[in-house]
């Protein structure tokens, strides 16, 4: 057993157990904290796959920004009553089950019934370097420069919009 396999098993176990804990915890804040743990374990798995950029983004954006937002919302809401609303409705459970089943079937199909695409098969050395930060940076500033600029305008418009909607007083 090499180190990579051991690391994979440990991280995968943490990810799976914390994912189960997210849905079994009765207190929403505890669920959120287990979700953070799950995100960290997934980031570790991405690192094992040589996808540094996605691992970093996973930690900064998901475990950082989005989870803080989640926790803020949970703390602002009255969590105990909110929890009751969610469990009382039967159709919400049904809907959640439906979506999980859909995602499960889709992933199972991907893993067991599809062949790896040519991009992965072709040159292992090249494809393993796709996810590194250098390569993503290079692509972003050459081939994808226009979407990158567009994202800049998108964030600018969103900032202006947030200012308009949240600014206290207009002169």
């Amino acid at each position: 057993m090499n180190l990579e396999l051991i690391l994979f098993i440990v991280l995968a176990l943490i990810a799976a157990v914390s994912a189960v804990m997210v849905i079994t915890q009765s207190h929403p804040v505890m669920s959120a904290i287990f979700l953070i743990l799950n995100f960290f374990a997934l980031a570790g798995l991405y690192l094992l796959l040589n996808a540094q950029f996605i691992a970093v983004v996973q930690v900064i954006v998901y475990a950082g920004a989005i989870m803080v937002l989640f926790l803020f919302v949970l703390m602002l809401l009255n969590t105990s009553s909110e929890f009751k609303v969610l469990t009382d409705k039967k159709f919400i459970k049904f809907f959640a089950l439906l979506i999980s089943a859909f995602v499960f079937v889709q992933l199972a199909y991907l893993i067991f019934f599809t062949k790896p695409s040519n991009a992965v098969k072709g040159n292992l050395n090249v494809s393993s370097q796709i996810g590194t930060i250098q390569n993503i940076g290079k692509e972003l500033y050459t081939n994808y420069i226009i979407p990158f600029e567009a994202a800049g305008f998108l964030l600018l418009a969103a900032t202006i919009g947030a200012l308009i909607l949240a600014k206290k007083k207009f002169e």
Partner: peptide
Amino acid sequence: MIFMGLELMSICFYV
């Protein structure tokens, strides 16, 4: 590009 344009347009419309 479709997605970027769609989001840029939509976010402006939401506001």
